[in-house]
Design a protein around this nucleic acid. Structure first.
Lengths: 348, 348
DNA sequence: CTGAAAGCGCTAACAA
DNA sequence: TTGTTAGCGCTTTCAG
């Protein structure tokens, strides 16, 4: 007496299934499925009949059950390590928008500090994501191999891993560093310094390499380098104090990111009484919103974040649909943003 | 000749299932399931036998298939509208960490600008999320009702919706506004201004209300208010110009968030030649990282973001496990952070 | 403690 | 175009 008269809401907290809709509309289960499958062949009247029943019951297809059959979840895992650098909020903005526009959803994972990337990658794979983007410390061979075996496109974002058995999208950091060097050479200042981020960060390494190359090719040298423990304003302050306390104080400093640059400018003015840019030319990297603030007017190198995200999403959605062997690397050019943190050379 | 000799990797891009493991270990499918189900009763030797086979094959349980049975996805939808205010990166940091610590994952949705909240909520519900947090414009009755019917706990974060048929976690913005007013009253300045965000934002409304109350209770009045079109530095610059161009220029301004405050300070110094805080006292809200920068030293009101996230996650995980009727509102106190952007009253 | 069998909600052949 | 019938990969009674 119970089983047949049981309504859906009694059975399970009002979870309406396609079966309920089929019953309501007096059609088969597959008819309902077809109506909710884009591009399936259904007659017009079948469609309205089903839709009416569906609307009446408030039916929503269960995408998880669907995924089980289709082997497609429309989920993309995004693993991030840096939740302190504001550019990553912009990155997330672009990613969510671009992916949403293609019908994909973002499963966001945080691997900063204590979290283990290896473990998180494992977790995200359990959700059968269709693609994975990682912008975090070293991506282990195990992860890349796992993704490859399961045919899940994996792209390293804004990071350049040693091995290249995955897709890579990043800015041309070395070239950006060169541009910074070239620009600083025009300041007339000659005691070059580099305020780096953590020494393991690929961004620090490449930006520094490009910067040094430019300086050295001009017959000059980088006389001082400090590494901030992380890419934040606070860490920048400590680092700036060290840099400016050197016996031979640098007067033209390239900072591996804008937050460090802003810290350097503040410390220089506030604690060392320097007048900027007369006594110190500063160049940043990223072009965060506040780099344009009147307090800084920071001349900096901008990464094409939106384009980078676009490339990443392109790679993903293409490879999701048609898996193919091989990996691609897309390196995008940075552009200099001229403001007022670099000295004019004295008119000779 | 094909079906029986077919290995898993031939059948499907090496997607190892529990069945494969069972076969490998020479045990039943349910045995494998039990081994991967915390708290199921399995003998020790069964466990090692299954684990060996699983490790050998590189088996990872498919959580989606599991969800279909358990009616639990361990997914929490997070819908955000503001990807320009850096505090939301902090919020995401806390959310991902706190949820990950409880075995929950974040499905991140962006509803800024063009995106439709109603539509996104629908999409996220299709993934059978176990809970939903929304920090975005007005949450429609339809959404709340839908969540309620499906017994999905829904919490409005840092936002106070009109209707209260959902959980709410937010800072006590009105009280924060009062504190700001009280503090500004001590500056000796008497021409009070309010630099608001968008007039529809509940934060602007409540912070402004509290501020005005404090000023008026002291027998003073707020003589000027401007609304920035959004909570960004750039919008703040425009807004600051308007505010400072008033015939009767305010000299004690409460800004609805730090970015607006920083813009105001910059415009005041740079375009109006004011000396701060002598000519203008400024108070902010949020305490973003850069509020502490030497260029600003902004006295501000801090929202307890981490605690707010913690409360939200508490509500969610509690209600996920034991659904109960009724909604709770948790309003957390803000704290003032004293720095140097407010004038000392003249010694009388 | 273990295995067999019945689903979770849906899609995808296959016939009709 | 439609309905019937198998599953997708897993959990969960229910016997043994």
């Amino acid at each position: 007496m119970k089983e047949s008269t049981e309504t859906p809401s009694e059975r399970n907290a009002s979870r309406i299934t396609a079966m309920d809709v089929a019953r309501e509309a007096g059609v088969s289960l597959s008819a309902v499925s077809r109506v909710f499958t884009p591009g399936a062949s259904v007659s017009a009247k079948m469609r309205v009949r089903v839709m009416e029943a569906a609307d009446k019951l408030g039916y929503q297809p269960n995408v998880l059950a669907r995924s089980l059959m289709t082997q497609r979840t429309n989920l993309v895992g995004v693993i991030l390590a840096n939740f302190k650098n504001p550019i990553y909020l912009t990155v997330l903005d672009h990613f969510t928008r671009a992916l949403q526009a293609r019908g994909l959803r973002v499963l966001l994972l945080n691997v900063s500090d204590g979290q283990d990337l290896e473990e998180m990658a494992r977790l995200v794979l359990q959700y059968s994501v269709d693609g994975l983007v990682v912008s975090a410390g070293s991506i282990s061979p195990h992860i890349t191999e796992q993704c490859h075996k399961r045919r899940i496109p994996l792209v390293a974002f804004a990071r350049r891993p040693r091995r290249a058995n995955l897709h890579v999208v990043c800015a041309d950091n070395a070239a950006g560093g060169r541009v910074a060097g070239a620009r600083l050479l025009q300041s007339g200042h000659r005691r070059f310094g580099f305020m780096a981020g953590p020494s393991t960060a690929s961004t620090t390494i490449e930006r520094g390499k490009g910067f040094r190359a430019a300086i050295e090719e001009a017959g000059q040298g980088v006389i001082a380098t400090t590494h901030a423990r992380e890419y934040t304003y606070t860490a920048g302050v400590e680092s700036a104090r060290k840099l400016l306390s050197r016996a031979e104080r640098p007067d033209a400093v390239f900072c591996a990111n804008d937050l460090l640059a802003m810290a350097l400018m503040d410390v220089a003015r506030d604690e060392f009484g320097l007048t900027l840019p007369r006594d110190l030319s500063v160049m940043g990297f990223d072009d965060v919103d506040l780099a344009a603030a009147a307090s800084y007017r920071l001349t900096t190198i901008r990464q094409p974040l939106e384009a980078m995200v676009q490339e990443t999403v392109d790679i993903l959605s293409h490879r999701i649909n048609t898996w193919s062997e091989g990996w691609e690397t897309r390196q995008l050019a940075c552009t200099a943003v001229e403001r007022a943190s670099i000295a004019e050379p004295p008119p000779d």
